[in-house]
């Protein structure tokens, strides 16, 4: 009915096709971010007696805390756009943190995992970490594309196994004594730089490359994509491999930032990353999602956590409220989508 209505309106419009972009849908989610910030600002003056936003240190820490989530979320967003899901990214962070760190130990450290392989140049642990992440992603993608098991199950299996690898690797011992060369990437503002660079690269990739166009097409209608000549299987492997690669990168940054690696790193990160993508407007049904939205979604998660701490809200309440805010964000979005259709 409603589509007919629009169609009739369209038929009255001149046939001459105009080229004009719609207002990007990220505006809405940006308004939500600003709204949350303003609420904290007001509550800050009311209850804490200081400004929430006018504190550069707080803002820096806030973004630093979520930049690892953000790196993962960039990969997860692409998976979600294809209509899939990646539950393994948090575990892959833990696994790559452990393995990469084991190649980044200094000779001064007496309990190195590989005593003969110490003081290696930065590039070695970096490539090892990225390689491990990529491998995990390739396995996910291969399973989903060729065995046709649902992404939920394939990545659930990877989530459990990758976590197992990170525990088995040193029998639960942390990997410490990392070289300054390696930990450099986790110092200062570097994690944020990595996050925003990755976001920029894949924003461009999704918007302006064939890779991006095919990703959206598969998510919008996988059968139509196949009939249009897209090699769906090969493309899905690419997307999951990229998600794995980015989880690997996040693992490296995590270990570098903590100056040590532990088997429990990255637990639940996958859920935060999915939340960031969904808050940013990605649809789990596929075909919809943007990196800019995901970046804003990530920052919203950061602002929420930081704001709670700032207002000295009990940590227990924080999680309860965070869950509700995630749901509220999506409910609002679903409602908005429905309204636009009718």
């Amino acid at each position: 009915m409603t589509t007919e209505h629009t169609a009739n309106q369209a038929s009255l419009a001149p046939v001459q096709v105009k080229t004009k972009r719609r207002l990007p849908s990220e505006i809405n989610i940006l308004l939500v971010l600003i709204g949350i910030a303003i609420v904290y600002e007001i509550l800050g003056w009311m209850f804490v007696g200081q400004s929430f936003l006018m504190n550069q240190q707080r803002l820096t820490i806030m973004i630093l805390q979520v930049s690892v989530i953000g790196i993962i979320a960039v990969g997860v967003t692409q998976v979600i756009i294809t209509g899939g899901i990646d539950l393994s990214s948090g575990s892959v962070v833990g696994m790559t943190a452990m393995i990469a760190a084991s190649f980044a130990q200094s000779a001064a450290w007496t309990r190195a995992v590989y005593p003969s392989l110490t003081d290696l140049p930065f590039i070695v642990p970096m490539l090892v970490g990225l390689g491990i992440g990529l491998l995990a992603g390739l396995i996910n993608g291969w399973l989903i594309a060729y065995t046709r098991i649902p992404p939920f199950i394939a990545t659930l299996g990877m989530m459990v196994s990758a976590r197992g690898v990170s525990k088995w690797y040193t029998k639960g011992q942390p990997v410490s004594g990392l070289t300054d060369d390696f930990t450099f990437i986790g110092t200062g503002i570097w994690p944020v730089v990595v996050f925003l660079t990755v976001a920029a690269i894949f924003h461009v990739a999704l918007r302006y490359t064939r890779y991006g166009k095919f990703t959206y097409a598969i998510g919008a209608n996988v059968q139509a994509a196949r009939v249009s000549g897209i090699n769906v299987e090969r493309h899905l492997i690419k997307v999951y491999a990229i998600a794995g690669l980015l989880a690997g990168l996040a693992g490296i940054v995590t270990a570098a930032r903590a100056q040590t690696a532990q088997a429990g790193m990255g637990v639940m990160y996958e859920l935060d990353a999915i939340a960031a993508a969904v808050i940013g407007g990605a649809s789990l049904a596929g075909g919809v999602g943007r990196i800019t939205g995901t970046v804003i979604g990530t920052i919203i998660l950061g602002v929420m956590t930081s704001g709670f701490t700032f207002l000295r809200v009990d940590a227990y309440y924080q999680e309860i409220v965070k869950g509700m805010i995630i749901i509220a964000a999506v409910v609002v979005d679903v409602y908005r989508q429905k309204k636009r259709k009718t």
Partner: peptide, 15 residues
């Protein structure tokens, strides 16, 4: 002669 307001209209809104 596709009747659409512009090329950025969602296809589901067309007849």
């Amino acid at each position: 002669r596709v009747k659409t307001p512009n090329l950025y209209e969602r296809v589901e809104n067309l007849s």
